[in-house]
Simulated scan of single mutants.
Amino acid sequence: MKPLQIFEAALNGTPAPRIPIFCNLFDQGARELGMSQKKYYAKGEHVAVGQLKLRARYGYDNVWSLFYVGREAELLGCREILYTEDGPPNVADFPITSYDDIAKFEIPADITAHPLWAETAQCLKILRQEVGATHPICAYITASTTLPAMLMGMDKWLELLLAGPVDVRDELLRKCSLFVQQQIAAYRAAGANVLVYSTPFGTTAFLDRKRFNAIALPWMKTDLAPGGVSNIVYLCGMAPFNNVITQVMNELAIPVYYISPMADLAEAKALIGERALTCGVIDDIKMIRWRPDQVRAEVRRLCEIGMAGQHFLFGTALMPLVVPEAAIRAMLDAAFEHGTYR
């Protein structure tokens, strides 16, 4: 079976020789091609080739069309990205600096007409041609309740979200949701077959339950309703969200849940059962310091918890550049060994 078939089998609970194995390597692509981060991320071709080379080097299942998270802010008016050679690029210019800017802030009528989207489209074109029929191609979507943090800074967004004028907050969320809806449609049309919907506010780690119900959940419904939830992955950054899984499944019917390493995987698997795909995620921050035998032991633990009853995927978070090569190799060797159905 091809990796895409194995992923679909895990979704559906049908027989497969092993679990899907996702490894999210991003900035490592620049190192793979011997480029600076700025040069690497300037061209969609670079990102596609970097992703293909990394997947070929390590043998895991997925590739990414993601450049860096701040790319979404650039599509919405950010004029400067801060590059560093030891971490991901980040937003250095916020398009919104005051509440007055929100009234003037506009979503492009067609984000695919933006010059930056052309590079994303080129990346996806190459990935689709090379592995579109055989491997999961992932795209990254920032939820409407999280996108404002990239547009005005987390401190100002939290101030508006929790204590600011409700009409101003909802105006910004409405515009951000329109952008999210455009992105979902554009990524699907361009060939992405796994859409990772990132919503750190989709957990009570940032919001109390009352605000989760009143703000986060309704806007998630608004983001996802037009295109539906097929191939959507629920990701809350790396914040735990076990206490909202049942509610999200009941109200949104999202088919895949990327469980935080800080959460109880056994509890999450019990809550999700056969209704959706549970993703067991290794703590790749700890992998920076773990010995290879510690990495292998953790992979085995996650697989033993998650594989019963199928509907399980092994994955990573953001895999910092400083994660050692030996740890990556140990993790993937263990995932293929312990993720095999016998």
Rank of each mutant, 00 (worst) to 15 (best):
L116A: 10
G13Y: 08
K2T: 15
E32L: 04
V323S: 09
R296Q: 15
I137V: 15
E298I: 01
A113N: 08
R55Q: 14
M249N: 09
G227N: 14
R31H: 14
D86K: 04
A266V: 05
S260D: 12
R57E: 12
R289K: 12
G87V: 04
E304S: 11
V131Y: 07
I184V: 12
I111A: 02
A48S: 13
F26Y: 10
T146Q: 11
A253D: 12
A239W: 08
L4H: 05
Y58K: 05
M35T: 05
R342C: 13
E106W: 00
K43A: 14
G273S: 11
F7I: 02
E171R: 14
F94M: 10
I81L: 07
S260H: 04
Y197N: 13
V63H: 00
P292N: 05
F7A: 06
G70E: 03
F336Y: 14
V244W: 03
W290Q: 11
A326R: 09
F206D: 03
I285Y: 04
A16F: 07
A73L: 03
T203F: 03
A118K: 15
A263Q: 09
D283Y: 07
G132H: 00
S198Y: 11
Y99L: 15
Y68H: 14
F26K: 00
R301D: 09
Y68L: 02
F201C: 08
R57H: 13
R301A: 05
T146I: 06
Y140D: 04
C78D: 08
I305W: 01
A109W: 06
A118S: 15
V248W: 06
C236S: 15
Q181S: 11
